[in-house]
Design a protein around this nucleic acid. Structure first.
Length: 916
RNA sequence: GGGCGGUUAGCUCAGUGGUUAGAGCAUCCCGCUUACACCGGGAAGGUCGUGCGUUCAAAUCGCACAUCGCCCACCA
């Protein structure tokens, strides 16, 4: 214990100290011999080259709250951290760095480029870990993993080879989303759609050998260079006569047929559509149906390619402009209209995506999705909030094959070799990896073609989608494909907490791959996590999404430096209602910094006064004796405030546990906040103040024992939310300077005997009496410092007896005389201010002439309110249907209320008569 | 084109059928009562988006509308 405790809580140094200590002592590595049910969770791995942003802060806070709470509850708890190589995201960053030097990755070559990325990883890769350590997250750093670590590399190869052998991974030429800047294929999920104002161009395609033409409408005129047909609906009377005829493609004068296809929407545009099988997914499908030629007119960087006649070499939008001009000049452009359209852009670099025909690797998803659907439907995997469950299931039900190959250099390279002679594909024999320069590469390189035996083998140049390796995260991090102790112990994990924005990207893929790849028969044992909690997005104070361009981005580390991690965490927790986004404001955080300060000062008060009491002879050793702490500190003979606070504590503990079970962080935090500030500080401590200086040693010791017991319970309750502050105070507790960590103590457990509804009712009555006094004084603007006398007429309990000597100080009264209502001593209240309540009537002697007018106004207002209220309730009670249909406790409750209100009402009327 | 969510105090949000709808911040009044002015005490502020319905009873359930937002989708 220290008397040196500062007046205001300064979190910075304290937090730094504990963050470092927790990390260095490997406090959160679960002991191998730990008993208890396993609770395991993996961290959604942040980008290895990134830094902590507000979304991480929220996610890590929520995970850490749950993890600390579970650990304290006695679970054998593992939180496994790590980082993701984040293929395309990282590569884009490094390419930008190169661009700043005037370089392109092609100029560097694959090996040199990869070296650059590794170098960048080494430079920045430790940053995010250091930041997380600073946040104090209670994960097991000894088990930290990176998706390109050799064991995880091997897991990726193993997964690929298994799926390949099972025929679930295949290669083929299909239409994919192509980013011309990244020069790679993207999955559907990696494109985002934006609505933009576009145009619809109406172009005339002359009919061969006739003076007629068909007008088609298009939003992308440049693709006409690749047109191989024009399609109309088979039933369309306008165009029936043209079906089978030949058109002359403008500008290139290529002959193309008019085909009939049900796909065509007669209502849209002119009802005739140009067909470009190499540049549009629908047209590709039509091309397949009608065996049309596929003419690719674009290069990988979206310039017009060799098939583009005189437009060769033009960038796609320049080509568009030129083509429109030429059409106009040739009289072939009928008209142009405005047209709102939705365009796909690359999620990473925001370039407009081009649908492109190319050879890619795909993963068949339907067979993988089926067990995932089953797991959710059978509640082996439960999803919170509930509405996300439907979204999850819908996506799985309509799933399409996943394009898993990327034309990138940063990632896990596909373990397939192509034969230069016969073109056959030879997979690596197994998933062994070897390590060179600390980096993994495939060890089992095939020496000859599996089909023709040729030695002319080259490895497939593509790497896997970064989400492929992330999809293995819950088991690749635990040693899979080996049957490790960790895997047996911690898989399946208990819970996954992630943002809803990566539900499909990551959560769904993990579910499918985990179910498919993990050994063991039961669904339970294969499902990678049994609960999925999806948190919201952190927005700015006005609920607007944070973005760099808007400039409303908040750097969590700045907030932490300014206000402390605990205040930040508490603000995030208290605002995190499931299924909602969070509007974060600095004011809110400042508010919880005040809460931290409140806790600090409550401790300061306790420490300071205990020291004084010790000086007066209190035996701290006895107070701190383990058996005194461990056994129920509360005894039934304790006076009201003690019985009350322990009863409150019991209910708070139950509420917090229940709330956290259901990820209701806001509720848990709210309950703890009000317990500490309201119940503990405003009432309990204030109530006990007179007793702390008691001459009676036994009474003082009992008071201290309970005070500290409640405080310690409160610290345990608070710890998951405010780990630093509670850790610091825990170590400052009497005789706790050698404590290891509050985080390894047990969470608060309520003794059922604490629940005491009588004590709660009595306390409520006292709080009402005190409130009435305070209210009356303030309303009448009486001098707040002046001690007054008051008379209390209570109906049931004896307030005097319950309250003891705490009453006057809390009300700032000189004395309170109590009467029972029967022995009412005077008919006229004289100079007194009167307040009535259900249980009592209160008269305060002001010792001065009352402002009669103000008092009358006040009473009249109250009279009106009561009158209205009583009338409404009586009306309700007079309703026969209400009496017969409503539950009797509701009816009786209402009757009792009316009776009380009527009594109050009569008293007010009497008082008004007296005054006037 | 489908689907989902929001609309409650000045602001940001809780509140999934029952007696007087809450919180934080902001506002107003009083108080430096020896833990805390990052405090204490008190107060004011809401026809719960609109309409119709279900029910003895609706912020809460249903339908419609308005409005804002999100997700999914191959209509050129």
């Amino acid at each position: 214990m220290s008397t040196e405790i500062a007046k205001a809580y300064e979190p910075r140094e304290i937090e730094r100290h504990w963050a470092q200590t927790w990390f260095e002592k490997q406090l959160y590595r679960p002991p191998d011999d730990a008993q208890g049910t396993v609770f395991s969770i993996v961290l959604p791995p942040p980008n290895v080259t990134g830094s902590i942003h507000i979304g991480h802060m929220l996610e890590h806070t929520q995970i850490d709250i749950i993890v600390r709470w579970r650990r304290m509850q006695g679970f054998k708890t593992l939180w496994l951290p790590g980082t993701d190589h984040a293929g395309i995201a990282t590569q884009v960053v490094v390419e930008r760095q190169l661009a700043a030097e005037g370089l392109k990755r092609e100029e560097l070559g694959r090996e040199e480029f990869e070296r650059r990325v590794w170098r960048w990883k080494a430079e920045s890769g430790g940053k995010i870990k250091d930041q997380m350590i600073r946040l104090g997250v209670s994960c097991d750093w000894t088990r930290a993993r990176f998706t390109l670590d050799p064991p995880l590399y091997r897991a990726v190869i193993e997964a690929f080879l298994r799926l390949y052998r099972e025929g679930l991974i295949y290669r083929g030429r299909y239409m994919v989303n192509w980013c011309p800047r990244c020069k790679t294929a993207l999955s559907d999920l990696e494109t985002v759609h934006e609505s933009r104002d576009g145009k619809l161009w109406f172009i005339r395609y002359p009919v061969q050998g006739a003076s007629e033409f068909i007008t088609v409408a298009t939003t992308r005129p440049e693709t006409m260079l690749g047109d191989t047909a024009v399609a109309v609906h088979p039933e369309d009377e306008r165009y029936k006569k043209f079906i089978g005829k030949t058109l002359l493609l403008p500008l290139l004068n290529r002959e193309i047929p008019v085909i009939a296809d049900d796909f065509v929407d007669r209502e849209f545009g002119t009802g005739a559509v140009k067909v470009t099988p190499a540049h549009d997914p629908n047209d590709f499908a039509m091309g397949q149906r009608h065996t049309l030629a596929e003419i690719d007119v674009m290069t990988p960087d979206a310039h017009i390619g060799a098939a583009g006649g005189r437009y060769v070499g033009l960038e796609r939008f320049a080509a568009r402009e030129k083509i429109v001009q030429d059409l106009k000049a040739g009289g072939l452009l009928e008209k142009t209209t405005d047209h709102a359209l939705s365009i796909a852009i690359c999620d990473r670099c925001k370039t407009i995506v081009e649908p492109r025909l190319s050879v890619q690797w795909f993963c068949k998803m339907q067979p993988l999705a089926a067990p995932a659907i089953e797991a959710v439907e059978k509640d082996v995997l439960s999803i919170v909030p509930e509405n996300q469950r439907k979204i999850f299931l819908d996506w799985l039900a309509n799933i399409r094959d996943w394009c898993i190959s990327r034309q990138l250099w940063w990632g896990h390279r596909i373990p397939i070799w192509h034969c230069g002679k016969c073109g056959a594909m030879t997979p690596a024999a197994d998933s062994k990896v070897e390590v060179a320069n600390g980096r993994a590469q495939i060890a089992s390189v095939p020496q000859s073609c599996g089909k023709c035996g040729s030695k002319e083998l080259t490895q497939d140049p593509d790497v896997l989608d970064t989400w492929f390796s992330s999809g293995l995260w819950p088991f690749s991090t635990l040693g899979w494909p080996d049957d490790t102790e960790d895997l047996r112990t911690f898989y399946p994990t208990s819970l996954l907490i992630s943002g809803y924005d990566i539900l499909f990207f990551w959560d769904a893929r993990m579910t499918m791959l985990g179910l498919h790849l993990m050994r063991g028969n039961s669904l339970e044992k294969r499902t990678p996590f049994h609960q999925l909690y999806l948190h919201g997005i952190v927005r700015d104070p006005h609920g607007i999404k944070m973005s760099k361009t808007r400039g409303n981005v908040v750097d969590p580390l700045e907030i932490i430096e300014k206000h402390g991690t605990d205040a930040f965490r508490f603000a995030l927790a208290v605002m995190a209602a499931p299924g909602t986004d969070i509007a974060l404001s600095e004011e809110r955080i400042i508010g919880y910094r005040a809460f931290a300060n409140k806790i600090w000062n409550a401790a300061r008060f306790l420490f300071f006064n205990l020291e004084k009491a010790e000086a007066a002879g209190l035996n701290i050793d006895e107070l701190a004796a383990p058996e005194v702490r461990a056994n129920a500190p509360y005894t039934a003979t304790d006076s009201l405030p003690h019985r009350w606070i322990f009863s409150r504590l019991a209910s708070v503990i139950a509420q917090v546990n229940d709330a956290l079970e259901n990820f209701r962080f806001h509720e848990a935090a709210h309950v703890v906040y009000h317990f500490f500030w309201g119940d503990f500080c405003d009432w309990y401590i204030e109530w006990l103040k007179p007793q702390l200086a008691s001459e009676n040693r036994i009474e003082a010791a009992a008071t201290w024992r309970n005070l500290f017991a409640v405080f310690e319970y409160a610290l345990r309750l608070l710890h998951p939310f405010m780990p630093f502050l509670t850790e610091e105070l825990w170590h400052r507790l009497p005789q706790r300077s050698n404590a290891r960590s509050i985080s390894l103590e047990s969470f608060s457990v309520a003794n059922p005997a604490w629940s005491d509804s009588t004590a709660e009712e009595q306390m409520t009555l006292l709080q009402e009496v005190i409130g009435a006094v305070r209210n009356t004084r303030a309303e009448a603007k009486l001098d707040a410092r002046k001690k007054l006398a008051a008379e209390l007429f209570s109906r049931n309990a004896s307030v005097r007896q319950l309250a003891d000597r705490a009453l006057e100080p809390l009300m700032r009264l000189a004395n309170l005389t109590e009467f029972t209502i029967q022995e009412e001593p005077f008919g006229a209240a004289g100079d007194a201010l009167v307040r009535t309540a259900a249980q009592f009537e209160l008269r305060i002697r002001t010792g001065a002439v009352t402002d009669v007018k103000a008092e009358i106004a006040k009473l009249k207002k109250e009279e009106q309110r009561l009158k209205k209220d009583i009338e409404a309730k009586q009306l309700r009670l007079a309703d026969a249907t209400f009496r017969s249909r409503a539950p009797s406790e509701i009816v009786h409750g209402l009757e009792a209320t009316v009776a009380e209100r009527q009594r109050e009402y009569r008293e007010i009327v009497d008082r008004l008569t007296e005054l006037s």
